[in-house]
Simulated assay, not measured.
Amino acid sequence: MNFPSARFQQHATRTAFFIPGFIIASWAPLVPFAKTRIGLDDGMLGVLLLCLGLGSIVAMPLSGILAARLGCRAVMLATAALMLLALPVLTVASTPVSLGLVLFVFGAAIGAMDCVMNIQAVAVERDADRPMMSGFHAFYSIGSLVGATCVTLLLTAGTSAFAATLAAVGIALALVVAVARAWRTDRAPQDAPSFALPRGIVIAIGIVCFVSFLTEGSMLDWSAVFLHEVRGVGLQHAGWGFVAFNLAMTLARLVGDAVIAKIGRATAVLAGGLIAGAGLLLATLVPVFGVALLGYALVGIGCANIVPVMFTLAGRQTAMPESVAIPAVTTMGYAGVLAGPALIGFLAQGWSLPAAFVLVAIALVAVAVLGRRLTRV
């Protein structure tokens, strides 16, 4: 089967990572607006964010099966269309039920895209025969940075939330049209298993990814709420915390392959978890806006290369076939970014939002230790 050039496929894979990062980050600055518009408390917001996570959890295993049967391109095109349709609707949903339904569809689209783009990335990295995973994941961060920055700037300039999302959809649609023909169409062998429950080291890898992505989801859905409601930052400026997180993560991932080659995977994971935990504590416990931004930046630096290392390990482990291990790890990991923020909401309702962030920081330290051990297996 003939494919576009290897270089074009690599660029198309980077774009595939950019698009869901861009779209979901475009939602981040809008969370406080939705919370205020519908009159939600922390607990109810957590329930609705759980709808987003449930959509993802349902869609990820199914998307892996479909990608094996239909190829990555068909699944990514369908999921891109769904996420671009859902984003503007999130700004006009006026009841908890309607917002929850749209979040479910939005989460399903984002989750499916996230799963299949990693399947594509593994194939493209293998063809290139050199480390590329941190670089691919960097473009998810770049997309998040661009999406959060663009929407925050538009909101700061007085643009309506609906108009801001239409601008985001236009950018993402242009990117899909430009690169979709270079997304993979090859399918898994007919005798390959299409689904399997994770086991052995794959479970441990998934746990590390879950906590790392839970942290990212906390920044996505709760950093603006924290800065506005706890620190008193204006709604129009509360999105800058997530921007600081993503800028730092983006820069760290762009140099991630070189750093990992120099200090080793074990040290990179251990140092990353400790730095992220310390940064989150700093942002949570020091009541200064500038210090909070610094703390969020440290969280981004620390979390940046943990997940790329884990995906590399998932491709190298022998407990499960790669064709089912990658979707399994992706499902466990991205469930953290989508379902994890709902847990933050429940903890915030029961105790407080700062207390919830402290618990996440503790989990990051535990992940640093576990991840270091996994890299030495």
Rank of each mutant, 00 (worst) to 15 (best):
N2D: 14
Q9P: 10
I19N: 03
A25N: 12
W27R: 01
L40C: 05
L40F: 06
M44V: 15
L48V: 07
P61L: 08
L66S: 14
L66C: 15
A68E: 13
R69F: 10
C72Q: 07
L77M: 14
L77P: 11
L82Q: 11
L84P: 10
L87F: 07
T91M: 02
V92Q: 11
V92D: 07
A93H: 13
P96M: 05
G100C: 05
G100V: 07
V102N: 02
G111N: 07
M117T: 07
D129W: 00
F136I: 00
A138G: 15
S144A: 15
V151M: 04
T152Q: 03
L153Y: 01
A163E: 13
V169N: 07
L175P: 14
V176M: 02
A180T: 08
A180P: 09
A182E: 00
R184V: 05
T185W: 08
D186W: 04
R187M: 12
A192H: 13
A192G: 09
F195T: 13
A196Y: 08
F210E: 05
L214S: 06
V233W: 03
Q236M: 11
G241L: 01
N246K: 09
L251T: 09
I260P: 00
G264Y: 04
T267F: 04
G272M: 00
A276Y: 04
G277A: 13
G277T: 14
L280T: 06
L280N: 03
A283G: 14
V286W: 02
V288T: 02
L294E: 11
I301M: 04
N305T: 05
T312S: 00
A314E: 10
A314T: 15
G315A: 07
S323P: 10
S323C: 10
I326G: 05
V329R: 09
G345D: 11
S352H: 04
P354C: 09
A361S: 14
R373Q: 15
